[in-house]
């Protein structure tokens, strides 16, 4: 991996792709590969610029995750990391078939629901988010589920929750077996009560 001109070059004859540079930034390359990348970067400004983009993406992702505005499945380690960083995590643990009174305050940073379910044998799991009448509003298909896990950690957008008026949300975990047959693994009802001032309060 070298540039055509090992100098103040602006043209790279063998550009490193962003995924490889991300691996480099994440320190997951083997030593010989890392050395090759570093030697290249010491001779190539276009690839250096691409690495800066990867670094920017990494930093922005970090900021985005801290904001708690992403709807996504998270891990226990992610929640612990957030707590270690000083973020305030509001978490509701709900059994299958259960319901919970919930709210969110200005001081909360992340909003998490631990949805207990028997997911044994599931080849795929979807999370369906429904309104009070049970009509699906959003589906997260094929969510990541640790094999053998007895629960799913769902992060709701705290930005959305802080702005939401009183409402009821029904979440459903839908498990699919090898033949694609769907079964309801758990249903969870959230009675959200708004405690923050603002429109819709």
């Amino acid at each position: 991996m070298t540039t055509g001109n090992a100098g103040g070059s602006v043209v790279c004859s063998r550009p490193l792709d962003a995924a490889l540079l991300a691996d480099y930034w994440l320190a997951v390359l083997l030593a010989p590969d890392e050395e090759a990348v570093e030697l290249h970067l010491l001779q190539c400004d276009p690839c250096g610029a691409r690495l800066r983009e990867v670094i920017a993406l990494s930093k922005s992702m970090h900021r985005l995750a801290r904001e708690g505005s992403l709807r996504m499945i998270v891990s226990d380690a992610s929640i612990q990391r957030a707590k270690d960083e000083g973020l305030r995590v509001r978490q509701y643990d709900v059994p299958a078939g259960g319901s919970v009174q919930c709210t969110v305050t200005a001081g909360d940073d992340l909003l998490i629901a631990r949805l207990a379910a028997n997911l044994a044998g599931a080849q795929r799991v979807d999370l369906s988010l429904c309104d009070q009448q049970g009509r699906e509003q959003l589906r997260l298909p094929d969510i990541p589920v640790h094999p053998g896990s007895d629960s799913v950690l769902y992060q709701e957008s705290i930005t959305f929750a802080k702005a939401a008026p009183d409402n009821v949300m029904i979440a459903r975990l839908l498990a699919f077996d090898e033949s694609g047959i769907e079964r309801l693994a758990g249903e969870y009802t959230f009675h959200h009560m708004r405690t923050m001032p603002g429109p819709g309060a």
């Binding site: 994440l26 992702m61 970090h62 801290r66 992403l70 499945i73 380690a77 298909p141 990541p144």
Partner: peptide, 16 residues
Amino acid sequence: KERERTVVVMTFYDEQ
């Protein structure tokens, strides 16, 4: 996709 989102967040935020 859900898995992709989880992977990038775990990678870049959790640094796992």
